[in-house]
Design a protein around this nucleic acid. Structure first.
Lengths: 129, 129
DNA sequence: ATCTCTGCAAAGGCTTTGCACATAG
DNA sequence: CTATGTGCAAAGCCTTTGCAGAGAT
């Protein structure tokens, strides 16, 4: 009963490998990062398959897209908990944060119907500060 | 003494036109939207010039990039006030919001140095709800 | 055996860049 | 007059798609 399950009828080594990468590395990844990591267990994996698999996982509700201004989107495994992100402007990595800000509804004027929200903090991560 | 003023030594009709579009239409615009609007006062304006001008304005600190997941970035004139955005998932437009959430520092664990933050609300705008 | 999935390569969008001409200063 | 800015077209990413062969069931 997940969203659009239609395009995921078979279990393959490539999909397992890609799923494993997302579950092992717990932060938003670019398609290229996914390819490099997943090739360690599926050496001749192609980039097109990574894109197709990301899209399928996304439509199944298993992956979540994270936008970074001026860059291709990253994707992360959609666990149950709601959270936000930190973008390090030095090393360019995106980290997942715990917790969620409150009172965001107050930001929208009357007439706007809020269905979701995203927060991105920007700065220096512990490695780069 | 603005940021990288280096690439903006001359005033031209194209730049004036592009600047006018951003200042007149007070929400984040895609390069294509900018081209279409700016051509009303600079008819044979080219897309490459729009991109070059956006980049130059951005480096001068006059434009701010707004990311939308899975889409090319939009740009808006950077006025003095800090604010956030609302993305209508029906008509796909991005609107500027007034006000700013508090307590966002609490989201980042120790060790992360926060320099800025962005908030995007998602839902239906008054026209689409 | 069948129908989905994959890899490769070609095609598509968006953005950048090279170059000769236009033009602000 | 000179160096910057512009338009056009070509080139560069990133992403998607067509197709024939591989592989799951």
């Amino acid at each position: 009963m997940a969203a659009t399950w239609s395009m995921m009828e078979r279990q393959t080594a490539q999909r397992e490998s890609i799923r494993g990468v997302f579950q092992r590395i717990n932060r938003p990844l670019s398609p290229r990062e996914v390819l490099l990591q997943a090739r360690r267990s599926a050496p001749q994996l192609g980039l097109a398959t990574v894109y197709r698999t990301i899209k399928a996982f996304q439509q199944a509700g298993w992956l979540h897209a994270v936008a970074v201004p001026g860059q291709p989107p990253r994707y992360e495994w959609a666990d149950a908990t709601h959270h936000h992100y930190f973008h390090c402007d030095a090393c360019d990595r995106v980290f997942k944060l715990d917790g969620c800000a409150e009172n965001l509804e107050a930001l929208a004027p009357r007439g706007y119907k809020i269905e979701a929200h995203e927060i991105m903090l920007i700065g220096k991560c512990p490695n780069c500060r």
